[in-house]
């Protein structure tokens, strides 16, 4: 149960990091994040599950596909929108529109069936009294590696510095000679790729269908609301909280009551701390 919690938490952290990245850089909430997760899962399903491509090669393909989608969204939709928006609701509605579009494209192309893939590695590890299938361990390790890699990238590379600068102050970043439009598109692509990677990883454990997008978007929202929107450690913390809550809830309670309780808990939590655990007070 707790091990399941760890597996979930680590993967959720990937999702939460992706959405946080996009949110902090562009102040856009990516409503299509869950849909990107879903597309990542489908890329793995087709490449690895159907055509027998190496699993790790398909993960690379996921990054490429989602990166292009994210880049196009930023380039063709959001950049245009920012230049002509009159009300702040517009960019939010645009994001909702992209989610709707992606979800229904997926429905038309991939159908409604639940899809799964054969396990990447077989075998079971016994840790204490608990059994951990090797597949889950692999997913967990890969996700951990990705998270650490991302944090190092954002902290120490030139591009990462530009991304952080953009998140702090747009105008000053312009002044420092950074090509803001390009960096923003890159950030969006990176966020989308993270969502897709999480999809490609969790796909091997839970399978996927065209309808999961909204569910995962909502999970991503919950995580960043728990942790505080736009804050990297907050996103990880939120993922840990949600991952364990879900794992424990599913083990002890029947069906969808777990999420009902999580929602109720969230609303009560926001009553006392609307800015999340680590967010700064605002408004």
């Amino acid at each position: 149960m707790l091990l399941n919690g760890v597996v979930l938490a680590v993967n959720y952290a990937l999702i939460a990091l992706g959405i946080t990245l996009i949110f902090s850089i562009m102040n856009i909430l990516n409503f299509a994040h869950g849909q990107m997760f879903m597309i990542g899962g489908f890329v793995v399903y087709y490449l690895y599950g159907l055509f027998g491509v190496n699993y790790f090669a398909s993960l690379v393909a996921v990054v490429a596909v989602l990166g292009v989608i994210g880049w196009c969204f930023e380039k063709f939709f959001f950049q245009r929108m920012r230049k002509m928006a009159t009300r702040e609701e517009n960019s939010m509605l645009l994001a909702v529109g992209t989610a709707l579009l992606l979800e229904n494209l997926a429905l038309s192309f991939f159908g409604e069936k639940q899809r799964g893939v054969p396990p990447v590695v077989s075998g079971v590890f016994k840790i204490g009294d608990a059994f951990l299938p090797a597949g889950r361990l692999l997913v967990m390790v890969l996700a951990l590696v990705l998270i650490v890699g991302l944090l190092l990238f954002v902290q120490y590379t030139k591009l990462g510095r530009a991304l952080r600068a953009l998140a702090q102050d747009r105008e000053v970043t312009y002044l420092m000679g950074v090509n803001v439009d390009r960096i923003a598109a890159l950030g969006f692509a990176l966020g989308a790729a993270l969502a897709g990677l999480a999809g490609g990883l969790l796909m091997t454990v839970f399978g996927i269908n065209s309808g999961v997008g909204t569910v995962y978007s909502i999970k991503a929202f919950i995580m960043i609301m728990i942790g505080g929107a736009g804050i990297v450690p907050g996103a990880i913390l939120g993922a840990v909280v949600l991952g364990f809550a879900e794992a424990i809830g599913y083990a002890l309670l029947p069906g969808s009551i777990t999420y009902l309780l999580i929602f109720v808990g969230l609303i009560v939590f926001l009553l006392f701390r609307p800015q999340g655990l680590m967010g700064k007070p605002w408004g």
């Binding site: 909430l29 909204t214 909502i218 929202f221 009902l260 609303i267």
Partner: peptide, 10 residues
């Protein structure tokens, strides 16, 4: 927007 979306699902 996020909270209301969650509420619909809840």
């Amino acid at each position: 927007a996020m909270t209301t979306l969650s509420l619909t699902e809840a």
